[in-house]
């Protein structure tokens, strides 16, 4: 089964049809999804800027992580739920775009790296002993990783928006071209 058939299969389910038949469902889910971008991206921004020493330099990194991580993970969870429902409502619009596929790839990388980073920060803080106020030194390359993280999350946001413009953005690389150019 091709991805196109898979998407068309979801689109023909009664759940997908039901979601699409109520006009306010998709805009509402998209709105919640976009609000959560603000929560998640600013959490990532604050943690990254703290690593770069640009904000909250007077607070230990682990405290900044603990302040923003709950927002990061709750936001990601809400975006996952709204994203899945949106994809069920419009599977062809999502799966048959290069933007969506790249976005999913980058999401796996970014969520994985955020989880690994959080574990490492908390682990290092435990070892160093936050109670003593000793800030564990940051490993080499972590500043570069912070910048890369910001670039990748911005790319995810851009790709999310580009789903609606897959053909103008990607031209012949867009799988929507194989749908007869009906979709953009």
């Amino acid at each position: 089964m091709s991805l196109q058939e898979f998407a068309a299969g979801i689109q023909s389910t009664s759940l997908s049809t039901a979601l699409k038949s109520v006009s306010w469902i998709v805009p509402t889910l998209q709105s919640v999804h976009i609000l959560m971008i603000g929560v998640v991206f600013v959490s990532i921004l604050m943690i990254s800027l703290r690593v770069l020493g640009r904000v909250r330099a007077d607070e230990p990194l682990v405290r900044v992580w603990n302040r923003f991580a709950p927002f990061l993970w709750s936001g990601v969870a809400v975006m996952a739920v709204t994203g899945v429902v949106l994809t069920i409502a419009e599977p062809v619009r999502e799966f048959m775009t290069l933007s969506f596929r790249l976005k999913m790839l980058l999401l796996v990388i970014c969520i994985g790296s955020a989880a690994a980073f959080g574990r490492s920060v908390r682990g290092a803080a435990r070892v160093a002993g936050v109670a003593t106020g000793v800030e564990p030194p940051l490993p080499a390359g972590v500043r570069l990783a912070a910048v890369a993280t910001l670039v990748l999350w911005i790319a995810i946001i851009f790709l999310g928006r580009a789903i609606a413009y897959d053909t103008p953005v990607w031209g012949d690389w867009s799988p929507t071209v194989s749908l007869g150019g009906a979709a953009t």
Binding site: I34, L35, I37, G38, V39, F41, V42, S43, L45, I154, I157, F158, G160, R161
Partner: peptide
């Protein structure tokens, strides 16, 4: 979209 979400989040 990026800037609007930044405004809201900050």
């Amino acid at each position: 979209v990026l800037c609007v979400t930044l405004v809201f989040g900050t």
